[in-house]
Design a binder for these strands. Structure first.
Lengths: 237, 237, 237, 237
DNA sequence: GATGAATGAGCGTTCATTCAT
DNA sequence: GATGAATGAACGCTCATTCAT
């Protein structure tokens, strides 16, 4: 109950609309300046509503943060399955899931960092709910990994740890974007990383599947689907 | 210049003493509750000094945060070389560096998270300095990696990315401690992770070196090199 | 631009109302205790509003001082012309202007002293604006003097210095009120002072005009034009 | 008793020396920035002593202000008699007194303003003592005036008011220095002012005495002793 | 449903004053 | 006698939250 955001307004569609309005302003502002530093007034201004209105759809400043963080996690949980839709080949699904994850993060770097930075500002219950959602999105990846292992495309590896490795690799794109962003694009980053992490893991049977999966990479530059996608560009300073 | 913390007190030893006192209280409090939520009064109380005193050694609340974050990074830069002292074998050095990093982080999980969470609250110059220190500590790892590659113990891998993988793996122990901590100890975590990440990377020549290196692991239980390292729990306090 | 006091509230009438409320409390308090010694809380309390409210209509403690000082000068610039309205005879105008000045000052001794005491606490631009307003009020006097000179009612004197003499004479009523107030009333003070300062200055033609002007002195007792005006006491409330 | 500044130090010469040191720094600082804005630390620094030392010669911040203001008034009471020494002619004495007063004020404009601005920050007793000293210095002038009247050099004027007119005229040099300073020097100011104020007051007998007195004006430019010393320079802007 | 003026608790910071050395 | 590190009361100011319109 207390984990829910309670609104004084009855009409559900209005609640949904207003909350989206508020949370979008909040994500942008919190992402740029931080949660504590951002005032409710700023959020209201950016959302194009009055301060009072916010308190009709939310009962707390923390509610706004919760709404914002939830939205970020939900976007992961929305985008990964969307990328998986229609794919049946385990290797293709694994590939698609990781790349989808990488791309949402790339498109919402500030938002991703926001989750890392401000989850702790939530009260326990809600913090746990955020973590649950993160676990859920990890699950989307680990399911793919398990599938690959079951199908003999991956070696019989430590699924949990490997999944975390993948996840951290994706998050690292945001966490260390100040390091990477100037050196390479998200696709090269994913290519190089997957190559590094998969090599030891993929079985001989998997190699073929992997080739096919790469061909399916959406919006990939033609030559990046070649055998050596990771041709290093700049190699550190 | 403006990156330095300026104190009104002249005696350097006193400044060092007091600043340490202050920053220790700050790291603890900021780590537990967050920077913005913690008041200077709380820091003063915890440090066992008066509010006024803090402002004799620091000119700003931000100074305290800067002092705190600097100290955390410095502890990495202190501990990793300490673990390397006396070691000459490249593989042993790599191993020691990673394990040392993992252990400092394990001992200072809150502090590590603090860096992730609050670096952005610093003004540009200081934020950059913190990032520089992080790059410095990464360098301690990448030097070891390069050494191993040069000596033919590692394959000719993408050093930069591999280093980041290692680093993120260590950080993940803190970032996802809520997931891992209840399941395994830092040593098991390191064992499993290194196994996963090194397997594909280590050359045949390296395998032997690795074996020897593991034997040299300080306070490592003998069977931790077995197939199922996950049995182990935490060894540190 | 920066010389203006900026308010967060839009409705102009409200701004005017609240600022008057605030500035009246401020003038009283600053006049009695001094600007630096008076806290914003005290001003708020006296104005019957909350501390926060003050900062909605003012952005600074200095803003309050500026508002206060401005109001004092403006009251001079309002009252002197008001006393001149309808008068055409140069001598009558001169007489009315000086007496009006004397009376505003008498009614606002503390406020007048406040200007002397605290103008320096304003930042340059605003200090200059206050001085400009003072120059403006001096001008109201000097215009009358010049008129009298032009009409041959006054000798061809040093207008500027004579005006300053008149002005300082009026200010002295406030500056040295601790000396004068117990000895005579503002009207007697003005009578005696004008007699002293005008005697050498007024031409023969002017003497007649002066007599008439005095007759026009509002609420003046008949015998106050006699040789010994000092018998009189205060008439004002 | 409480009007006296009490020192913890016994040796009287030391007390005198230190207090002078302190008060000189204070007058300079308070004059430039104002009393409340100036910290004891700043005074100590400027005086070249430690904060602690100040509190050995003074028991309060107010003590320092009192010391400072007293010194200013004392300098008037010292300089005027010094200028009178040896002079016996009433007119010459009057002239010398006024000019001496004008010159001390000119040399200590900031200090003079300080008295106007901060006397109120003193507690009653001390405020009264400062006023007493001011009355004393006024007395030095009024004595000269009375002497002139007695000797028939001045008309039988309102001595008290005339004295105040003279005093305010001198003070105005400081109070309105922002107006006058750029237009004329102190001597021209005194010449013009005295001419304006004396003309109606001086008897025929006095005229001669006045001429002689002017000749005695110390350090006067040769032609400024002529019959018309007030040849106006610039006449207002 | 929406607004935004009003509130006041609470924070960062300063600085007069003390006192151990 | 002199120092300056330490104290803590108190101030200016902010901002989440409320509520009359």
């Amino acid at each position: 109950m207390t984990v829910k955001v309670v609104s004084k307004i009855e009409v559900p569609e209005l609640v949904a609309l207003r909350q989206r309005q508020i949370l979008q302003a909040a994500v942008a502002l919190y992402g740029k300046q931080g949660y504590h530093v951002t005032t409710i007034r700023e959020v209201a201004q950016r959302a194009g509503v009055s301060v009072g209105l916010i308190y009709q759809y939310v009962s707390d400043k923390e509610d706004v943060l919760f709404l914002a963080l939830t939205e970020v996690l939900d976007s992961y949980l929305r985008e990964i399955p969307r990328a998986l839709a229609g794919l049946t080949d385990p290797m293709a699904r694994f590939n698609a899931a990781v790349r989808a994850y990488g791309h949402v993060i790339d498109e919402r770097i500030e938002a991703t960092l926001l989750v890392y930075r401000e989850t702790k500002s939530l009260r326990r219950e809600r913090r746990d709910l955020i973590k649950q959602k993160e676990a859920d999105s990890n699950r989307l990846i680990s399911d793919c990994v398990e599938h690959c292992v079951r199908e003999g495309l991956f070696e019989d590896i430590d699924v949990e740890l490997f999944t975390y490795q993948i996840v951290m690799f994706c998050h690292a794109w945001a966490l260390k974007s100040w390091h990477f962003k100037s050196r390479l694009g998200i696709d090269d980053y994913l290519d190089r990383g997957l190559k590094l992490m998969l090599n030891p893991v993929v079985t001989t049977r998997g190699k073929n599947a992997y080739g096919r999966a790469l061909e399916a990479r959406p919006a990939a530059a033609p030559d990046s689907q070649s055998d050596k996608p990771a041709r290093k560009t700049r190699r550190s300073a």
